[in-house]
Amino acid sequence: MELAIGIILGCCALGAGICMGIGAIGPGIGEGNAVSKACEAIGRQPESKSAVTSTMIMGCAISETTGIYALVISILLIFVAPITMVNTLKSAVASLL
């Protein structure tokens, strides 16, 4: 029983870490691309700085979405999943006995 609970807690923590780590790669690359292109555009046409900046921030926020999904999943894995999983395990064990 203790071993099973330990495995559940450890796997939840591991899963949350892996989820956030892999999920952060995509938005990082995407936002870096967006900002580099925006810098190029501003360098070419400095008078269109405000329009480029607002569009860039908008695009950054949208490409951040997948990272936010990963964050939500990892928060669920840390704060919600262990409690419910341990509870279901306990009730299953109690019904077996």
Binding site: I62, T65, I68, Y69, L71, V72, I75
Partner: peptide
């Protein structure tokens, strides 16, 4: 779904 998750996740991640 994506609109709700984006807004909620950003604010929640800041407080966390």
């Amino acid at each position: 779904v994506s609109m709700a998750f984006r807004h909620y996740g950003n604010v929640l991640s800041g407080s966390v």
